[in-house]
Design a protein around this nucleic acid. Structure first.
Length: 540
DNA sequence: AGCCAGACTTGGAAGAATTTTC
DNA sequence: GAAAATTCTTCCAAGTCTGGCT
């Protein structure tokens, strides 16, 4: 009976995704123009977290060992801190200072009188309580989907996210949907705005309070709207092969140009075309993280090396790229590029902080490229080069050293290296490390003791090995803690954003490798269009 | 012509789930 | 059978690029 009742309540949601029929949108004829993204768009809007619930009576907050009852608002803010009590950040002085200031604003005068220092606060009971509490899956069921032209589709980012920022209310949210399908806001609330703009694909948007940046509720990567764009992206990147010769010819001419902006454009385009650099827009001058791309490179980021015979010209990049990932590599360049760069550096009097390419910017570049072929922008080069490289690497794989999947990963690794996709092996935090080292040292001395005791007897071989192993372990801990060389390549980004999935599908068919070995479930959903095309002869 | 809000794309890290190892 | 290692998913920050404004 219970089952039946549940079934009636959520008939569609009980059918798991794998059992559902897939909407093969890629087999359909386009029903409307490119500029129109949808005919009907229905969804429930973002989910809002329920109003704050007070702590149960048995969970207490202590100040200086005494129980203190916080007013509701102060308790709510305290709960945010309690939830991350064991996080490294709570040992950060600035973090604590900022939090304490904001927290005080939420306190009633009486409470404020009592609480004078953060380090006298005991959040441990609260922290334990929240750790037990589980998030509610029902929210995902009700709000995790939208309907595009009658088809059910998953929503991408979770609408209820956003930690310490100001709470988002329905009044802050703009809804984008079909005319007659406006979602219900929370009782007693109304939406900030409702629009019916079929030229865009987002479902809801709002301004995030401290940074003032726009946030969007977008369709999931496996939805038609996202898949269609992805497909189109790879088609544009594919078409670049028909224009690359001409582009190269053109920029070679520009190297000799009298016009400084043409000359710089030529060199920049060469670097992007050869080394798959990002274009390098101006980054928002937030207090920290000065990052760079091709157009924004400074003089100090590029070092020129000429070997003693003056035969090979090399360029050394050394700069912080997107997400503050270090891009450091030595690459050979053509003579004229080398001379031009020398010139650009000299012009700035070798001042390290000066912009290396002061006569070009991303807009200029993109305007030029768009004139060459529709849809061409600088980022297309990265996609193109990555896909071409992968295709070539896979073609070169005539035999498999270990197994097919390992060979595949080798090819993938080349692409990741090219795109400079890194991943930092999470280093143990300092104090965790101390604890680990301590424990490791104890184990070692214990084993040594055992060995000594056993020396008189026989069969000490095993114990000797044990000591040796533990000694090595301890030594390794010391090495790892000294950090550096913790950088590893991350193959996921190139696989998800740069390599045309049809190249991979074709390879899988050719070598009889199940696609499941290469793409995870989520990735197969994202690339469903390519997998279903099932084209063994696909050539990028 | 330069600037910036708006709308997407791309990225590594954290956290969850799963597999492997001891 | 638990802990450790690895893999996968989610999260949301950090990029790109367009087009409208001044």
């Amino acid at each position: 009976l219970l089952l039946l009742w549940t079934f009636c309540e959520w008939p569609e949601l009980l059918v798991s995704n794998s059992q559902r029929e897939i909407w093969k949108w890629w087999e359909e004829e386009p029903k409307y123009e490119d500029s129109i993204k949808w005919m009907s768009l229905r969804h429930n809007g973002p989910a809002f977290p329920p109003p704050y619930e007070r702590l149960p009576d048995n969970i207490k907050f202590y100040y200086n060992g005494e129980i203190v009852t916080l007013n509701s608002e102060a308790e709510e803010v305290a709960s945010l801190y309690a939830k991350m009590l064991y996080h490294e950040l709570t040992r950060d002085e600035t973090f604590c200072k900022n939090f304490f200031t904001d927290w005080k604003d939420a306190m009633s005068p009486e409470v404020k009188d009592v609480i004078a220092a953060l380090d006298q606060c005991d959040f441990r009971e609260m922290a334990a309580y929240y750790k037990r509490k589980k998030t509610n899956e029902k929210v995902q069921q009700e709000f995790g989907y939208f309907f595009l032209d009658g088809h059910k589709q998953r929503i991408g980012n979770s609408p209820s996210r956003g930690k310490l920022k100001k709470k988002i209310l329905p009044e802050d949210v703009t809804i984008n949907c079909s005319e007659k399908e406006i979602p219900e806001p929370l009782p007693g609330c109304s939406w900030g705005q409702v629009q019916h703009n079929s030229a865009v694909i987002w479902l809801a948007s709002w301004k995030e309070s401290p940074p003032g940046k726009l946030k969007y509720m977008m369709p999931h990567a496996n939805s038609k709207l996202m898949g269609e764009r992805d497909w189109k992206k790879y088609e544009v990147a594919r078409r670049l092969k028909h224009h690359r010769d001409h582009i190269q010819e053109q920029y070679r001419k520009d190297w000799d140009s009298e016009d400084k902006s043409l000359q710089q454009r030529g060199v920049v385009l060469y670097l992007i075309d050869k080394f798959a650099l990002r274009v390098g827009n101006k980054t928002k001058e937030g207090m920290m993280a000065n990052t760079f791309g091709c157009c924004s490179l400074r003089v100090k980021h590029v070092t020129l090396h000429e070997d003693h015979k003056g035969e090979t010209k090399k360029l050394e990049f050394n700069f912080m790229g997107k997400s503050s990932i270090l891009d450091k590599k030595m690459v050979p360049v053509e003579e004229k590029v080398f001379r031009n760069l020398q010139l650009f550096k000299e012009e700035k009097g070798e001042r390290g902080e000066a912009d290396l390419f002061d006569h070009v910017n991303p807009q200029v570049l993109n305007t030029y490229l768009k004139g060459l072929t529709k849809g061409l922008t600088t980022k297309v080069f990265r996609t193109h080069i990555a896909s071409i490289t992968m295709e070539q690497e896979l073609k070169n794989l005539t035999h498999h050293i270990k197994d097919k999947v390992s060979s595949f990963n080798e090819a993938n690794r080349k692409v990741a290296e090219l795109c400079n996709h890194q991943r930092t092996k999470p280093a143990l935090h300092w104090f965790e490390l101390q604890v680990t080292i301590e424990a490791s040292r104890d184990e070692l001395s214990l084993s040594k003791k055992k060995l000594e005791q056993a020396m008189q007897g026989s069969s000490t071989e095993e114990l000797k090995n044990d000591v040796k192993r533990k000694d090595d372990e301890l030594r390794e801990l010391g090495v790892n803690s000294s950090m550096e060389e913790n950088k590893q390549l991350n193959l996921n980004s190139s696989k998800l954003y740069y390599i045309d999935p049809r190249i991979i599908v074709a390879w899988c068919i050719k070598w009889g490798v199940p696609v499941e070995k290469i793409y995870t479930k989520a990735q197969r959903d994202k690339f469903a269009w390519a997998i279903h095309m099932n084209d063994e002869n696909f050539e990028f």
